[in-house]
Each structure stands twice: as C-alpha cells, then as structure tokens.
C-alpha cells in the first residue's frame, strides 16, 4: 500500500514541477500576436495558393496588418474579402477587377503541325528544353503535358485536345499556372471577355503560317480594323490592350487566321 501512495506522489510531484516550469516559461516566451492579424487571417480563404505573392494566407494576413500589402491583395477572395478586410483595417478598398488566367494558344492536335514524335516523360518543363521547344512545329505553343494542371489548386485548368484550357468560373487568378508554364503562353485576361488573341507565336508570317493553322502571322489587319487603337502588333504578335478594348469583335471577324476568338 505504502509503495502505491509513494509512486503516485512521486509522479504527481514531477508533474507539478513540470507544470510550474511550463507555466513560467510560457510567460517568458510569450509572443505578442497582433489582433488584426488573426482577424484578417479569418477573412482570407485559406487556400495558401501564393497568388498574392506571399508565402501563404498567414504571411499575407501579417503583411496586411502591418500595412505592407493592399487590403485587396488576395486574388482568390476578390471584392468580397477585400471589403471585409478593409473594414477591419479601416481603409477604403479600391474596386478590384476580376481577372482570370487564359492560355494564348490554340495549337490543338488538328491545328498544330508536328516536327517529330515525342514519347518521353509527360512534363512541359522537360519537353520545353528539347530542340524546337517540344514536338509542335511552333516553338511558342502550349505543349499540353499538364504542368499547369498540376500547379492549379482549384481544378480550373485542364488539357483538352492537346492544349490547356482554363475554366473561367473556377479560376481565381492566383497565377500558379502562369508561374509553372515554361512556354509563358498563359496570361491574365478580364473575366467574361469574349475576344482575346489566342496565339503566342512571334515568328514572321511564313514561318508562323507553316507551324499552325490558327497562328498569328502579324499581318496587322486587326490593328487597321480597330477603331479604339486597342490592338497592336508588337514583335510579330497581336497584343490586346484591355483598357481600351470595348469587346466589339471587329478584329475577330477580320482576322484572316481566326486567331482572335
């Protein structure tokens, strides 16, 4: 009997000492947490996608609370979250325009010509380092091995017919695919915009024409057609200026290559 009491007492004493030690050291090592950080963090979606340019939602919350980041920095949450955060921070948020990712290439299996057959590992980063940047004749094309699909945490980009396609409804413009794409064919465009340049080819007319059925040959027809000066041929490729464009679609109907959709 005595030994039972003794062992119980011994363990209790050890536990008591440990408890006191931990209690004291938790006071000594106290980390001051800014109330704002916790509140802002609660509003953020918590995907940790890194689209804001910070390491994750925690890091962004800290940056916002310190005033280093804008209240509408989170691309996933959009205007809704920005409004909540600006309430906490007491700052007025600017209207943030919804953007989505867009693949500037339509080099599908039918459209794009191939120069050779590639049977190696299905990874764009690897294929991009091959001669001619992949099997497609166009060396600016989407390779279609799905490195962007892997990068996307929102199931918003898929390979359809050899080319990546973005689901506008699911896309949150976190830019993960843009960073992942070795060919740099993905960019941000306005949500629900109907007319976009669907080509990234910067080769001259003849070469571009041989490479793909829907390539931009830099003929300049769109530039001449546009009344708003919203589309320009820069470096053998038509580039749209979303600030000026009113989505009239004249350039798309005039384009001889049908590379403006």
């Amino acid at each position: 009997m005595q030994i039972i009491i003794f062992s119980v007492a011994l363990i209790s004493i050890i536990a008591l000492i440990i408890g006191i030690f931990l209690g004291v050291s938790s006071e000594i090592f106290k980390v001051k947490v800014d109330e704002k950080v916790a509140k802002v963090r609660e509003c953020l979606p918590g995907n940790n996608c890194g689209g804001c340019g910070y390491a994750g939602c925690d890091a962004l919350a800290e940056a916002i609370a310190k005033g280093e980041a804008a209240v509408n920095q989170c691309p996933v949450g959009g205007a809704n979250v920005a409004a909540k955060i600006s309430e906490i921070m007491g700052v007025v948020a600017d209207e943030s325009v919804k953007m989505v990712a867009f693949v500037h290439c339509d080099g599908t299996c039918v459209n794009a010509n191939k120069v050779y057959e590639y049977n190696g590992t299905k990874d764009c980063r690897l294929a991009a380092s091959l001669p001619n940047a992949g099997e497609k004749k166009c060396s600016y094309a989407c390779l279609g091995y799905g490195t962007c699909v892997e990068a996307c945490k929102f199931d918003a980009i898929h390979i359809i017919d050899g080319v990546a396609k973005v689901d506008e409804e699911k896309c949150v413009a976190c830019k993960a695919c843009i960073k992942a794409c070795p060919m740099k064919v993905i960019g941000l465009v306005l949500y629900k915009k109907e007319h976009k340049v669907v080509c990234s080819n910067r080769d001259k007319g003849k070469m571009a024409m041989d490479a793909c059925k829907v390539s931009c040959i830099a003929c300049g027809m769109c530039e001449k057609t546009c009344k708003k000066d919203a589309i320009n041929v820069v470096g053998n490729l038509a580039i749209m200026n979303f600030d000026k464009c009113d989505d009239c679609g004249d350039c798309a109907t005039k384009c001889p290559r049908k590379c403006i959709s």
Partner: peptide, 25 residues
C-alpha cells in the same frame, strides 16, 4: 525503493514537457 516500473510514465512526462518548451522557444 525499486521504482523502475515508473520509468515509462515519468519519462514521457519529461519528454512532453521538453517538447512544449521547445515549441515555445
């Protein structure tokens, strides 16, 4: 007294405490 049968419980207490301490640190 031979209390070596208390080793497991006593040791795990100490380890848990140290980990908590390390976490704070």
């Amino acid at each position: 007294l031979d209390l070596t049968y208390l080793q497991t419980i006593a040791f795990i207490l100490v380890i848990a405490c140290l980990v908590q301490f390390l976490e704070m640190f």
